[in-house]
Write a protein that binds this DNA or RNA. Sequence first.
DNA 1: ATGCCTCAGCTCCTGAGA
Length: 257
Amino acid sequence: MKLATWNVNSLTVRLPQVLDWLAANPVDVLALQELKLTDEKFPHDAFTAAGYQAECFGQKTYNGVALLTRSPMSAVVRNIPGFEDEMARVISATVNGVRVIGAYFPNGQEPGSDKFAYKMRWLKALHGWVATELLASPKLVLMGDYNITFDDADVWDPVGLKDSIHCTEEERAHLRALTALGLHDSLRLFPQPEKSYSWWDYRDFAFRRNRGLRIDHILVSDALKPSVSACSIDKAPRKNERPSDHAPVTVALDLPH
DNA sequence: ATGCCTCAGCTCCTGAGA
């Protein structure tokens, strides 16, 4: 079973690239973030033709998430139950016995801002909910655009960006609280190239200079960890014309069928 | 550096992203 996550920064603009990527990378599950479109505009037909069913949670202009799967989904849940939120950031479903959560974590803008405070509240709510989910569904994958780096290895300029958004100790403490639930950073279970990032600013030739951050993650639960056989970041779509600023991340699980 | 790109929308500028 292969799963992937990709912040596409407008599905309207990126749909052809998503279809191309799926054709070349026929994963079983793809979590999408930043659709930037409403449910009525979600391209169900295009994904059906590509062999995927979709559950979407759209929103106008900002946010919006979806899950694409080859097998049927059950128990689809939108956002974090019990956490009032105007923004469409989370969609979860059970696929082939695995609980899959796709999430677009808040950006936070700047430490000390209202948006940062919202990010902290959201992270706390996510933690409580995921803890409950793990009890009911030990085989769980939490993947998406976390908008948080784990440590300096995830940052192209750890000195210059120290304590800036995505790199603060407060954000990282929330990320560690998630891993403390028994979740594992899939990418670091395997050797990776030096300076592996999943996002690069559109400006200043950041991709060409590999000035990026690793903020898109796939966390797998204790129960799934022994079955993880690979995890990688696919930089190829970032080289497309009109790319998303994020690259997809893929994980492979060896699960009995 | 109040910049740099990119996207959506009450679209020819602004807000937000990260």
